[in-house]
Amino acid sequence: MDIDAWVWWLIGAAALGIPLVLTAMPEFGMLAVGAVAASVTAGLGGGVVLQVVVFAAVSVALIAVVRPIATRHRAGRPELATGVEALKGRSALVLERVDGSGGRIKLAGEIWSARALDTDRAYEAGQEVDVVEIDGATAVVM
């Protein structure tokens, strides 16, 4: 039983798809697309040399064009802040006077203990303050 060249290229594409899924390295996917392009070339009657050239050209072109775009996109994605990191920089409402020794604020729908960043400064009930950092269970505000 003789298997056509285009089938071998498809088998190669599938074989390249396995490490793509296991390692999440997009380069394997680009090589798999190159193998599919070589399979199409073989199906249309192209010779072995043309098949290899198409495989190499498509793979290199995808890696040269798509990889830098994907890298730039991945680097530009904002980091998702969660937990106390998400509270930094938010506004809060003073419920009880806040000074260097303590007080209470309403932050993100919850009541928090708070203290002023500047120990000489005091914030009265009803004022809006900004959360600078979270120190344990205490919001440091200004």
Rank of each mutant, 00 (worst) to 15 (best):
M1T: 05
M1K: 01
D2H: 12
I3D: 00
I3T: 08
I3C: 00
I3V: 09
A5S: 10
W6L: 05
V7R: 01
V7P: 01
W8G: 08
L10I: 13
I11A: 13
I11F: 10
A13F: 11
A14E: 08
A15N: 09
A15Y: 11
L16F: 15
I18R: 09
P19E: 13
L20C: 12
V21Y: 08
V21P: 02
L22C: 13
L22S: 12
T23Y: 11
A24T: 08
A24C: 06
P26M: 06
P26F: 15
E27V: 06
E27K: 00
E27G: 01
F28M: 06
G29I: 07
G29N: 09
V33S: 02
G34C: 02
G34D: 05
A35F: 10
A35Y: 03
A38N: 03
S39H: 03
T41Q: 14
G43R: 03
G43D: 06
V48N: 02
V48E: 08
V49G: 09
V49N: 10
L50W: 15
L50R: 13
L50F: 14
L50T: 15
Q51K: 04
Q51V: 04
Q51N: 12
Q51H: 07
V52N: 08
V52E: 01
V52K: 00
V52W: 14
V53C: 08
V53M: 13
A56G: 10
V58R: 03
V58G: 03
A61P: 07
A61D: 05
A61T: 14
L62G: 01
V66M: 09
V66W: 13
R67N: 00
R67K: 04
A70V: 08
R72T: 09
R72W: 13
H73F: 11
H73D: 00
H73L: 11
H73C: 00
H73A: 10
R74D: 11
R74P: 03
E79R: 14
L80S: 10
A81T: 05
A81I: 09
T82F: 11
G83L: 12
G83E: 08
E85V: 13
G89N: 07
R90S: 09
R90D: 06
R90K: 14
S91H: 15
S91V: 12
A92E: 09
A92V: 10
L93T: 14
L93A: 12
L93G: 03
V94I: 05
L95S: 03
E96I: 04
V98K: 10
V98W: 07
G102V: 05
G102R: 05
G103K: 10
R104F: 11
R104W: 10
L107E: 04
G109F: 02
E110A: 15
I111T: 15
I111Y: 07
A114Q: 03
R115C: 07
A116R: 04
A116V: 02
A116D: 07
L117H: 00
L117K: 01
L117Y: 00
D118I: 02
T119A: 05
D120W: 02
R121W: 01
Y123E: 01
Q127A: 15
E128S: 15
V129L: 13
D130T: 08
V131N: 07
I134A: 09
I134M: 15
D135C: 10
A137P: 09
T138H: 01
V140T: 04
V141I: 14
V141K: 06
M142G: 11
